[in-house]
Design a protein around this nucleic acid. Structure first.
Length: 281
DNA sequence: TGCCAGGTGCTGG
DNA sequence: CCAGCACATGGC
């Protein structure tokens, strides 16, 4: 893979480990828009990037290109990550078939926390539709023509009724309560980043609507903690490919973490993507 | 149409 | 501690 910087652009060629469709459509991010057959717009909090792509190259363009260099995890070596996974389980390569150019995005924690609270027992289309409505109601119209994901201060006035009107259902009160708690000292960015993975998971699980699975997704996508293995309905189904034994979600997570260790989060995302697109046909 | 979706909270044993 | 159930909503 070749990464080139030109002004406010990043140009990627020889794209062995970068496929923008795989990256954006693998269920890790919900605040992006397909603007044409060959372009996307991605929103992270108040930042916006335009991505145009072809089999030969991908061009990322933004007013804050440094931010998106980190966002797309361009410092990480995915050849190494994939080989580490294969070292730990030789026949895992079959799960790369439908997505071997995924990257784990470095997303904004508040956006991830609120998005994944809504994700529980829900489908990706509806999650995206809801978050778009939240952005339109509470966010700011950006120069790129899309709305920002709202800040906590923009959301601080939101009520249960507001979210109910946006069809958040029973999650409305979880969101309101979480928005309030995220503004308290125990959820300051500084105090959270000081915690180890297990301690941070416990802290996150004190939030309404955050159980073990949502907490793992927040750790992986919002805090770049890769020693987690979120178990959702697709991973639960996939476990039949690994063992005939009936296991609980936490036992399934432990099974995979024992194999993949510090690369668990990456392995989970490849397996999840395989099930999501392979399972549907 | 009924089942399912990147599950969680609550309750009873 | 764990199994079982209710839950808002809409995609398919």
């Amino acid at each position: 893979m070749k990464i080139e910087r030109q002004g406010n652009k990043i140009i990627i060629t020889h794209q062995h480990d970068f496929d923008i469709e795989q990256i954006l459509e693998c269920g890790q991010v919900f605040s992006h828009y397909k603007t044409s057959a060959t372009s996307y717009v991605v929103i992270s909090h108040e930042k916006c990037a335009t991505i145009t792509y072809s089999p030969e190259k991908t061009v990322i363009e933004s007013d804050d290109i440094d931010f998106f260099y980190t966002y797309f995890d361009l410092d990480s070596d995915y050849e190494k990550i994939k080989s580490e996974i294969l070292n730990r389980q030789k026949d895992f390569s079959k799960f790369f078939v439908l997505g071997d150019s995924i990257r784990i995005l470095r997303q904004e924690p508040v956006q991830i926390i609120l998005s994944f609270i809504f994700s529980a027992n829900n489908n990706i289309k509806r999650i995206r539709n809801f978050l778009t409505k939240v952005s339109q109601k509470f966010g700011t119209l950006l120069p790129c023509g899309f709305y920002s994901f709202p800040s906590l201060s923009q959301l601080s006035s939101a009520t249960v009724k507001d979210f109910s009107e946006l069809k958040a259902g029973y999650r409305s009160s979880y969101l309101v309560d979480t928005i309030r708690r995220l503004q308290t000292p125990e959820f300051s960015a500084k105090s959270l980043s000081a915690l180890g993975t297990e301690e941070l998971k416990k802290r996150l699980m004190t939030l309404q609507g955050v159980g073990p699975k949502v907490a793992d997704c927040i750790l992986l996508f919002g805090f770049a903690r890769f020693d987690v293995f979120p178990v959702d309905t697709w991973i639960r189904k996939s476990f039949a490919l690994f063992s005939e034994e009936k296991r609980t979600d936490s036992q399934i997570a432990e099974y995979f973490k024992n194999i993949f260790g510090e690369f668990s989060g990456y392995a989970q995302q490849y397996l999840y993507n395989f099930m999501l697109y392979g399972g549907k046909g």
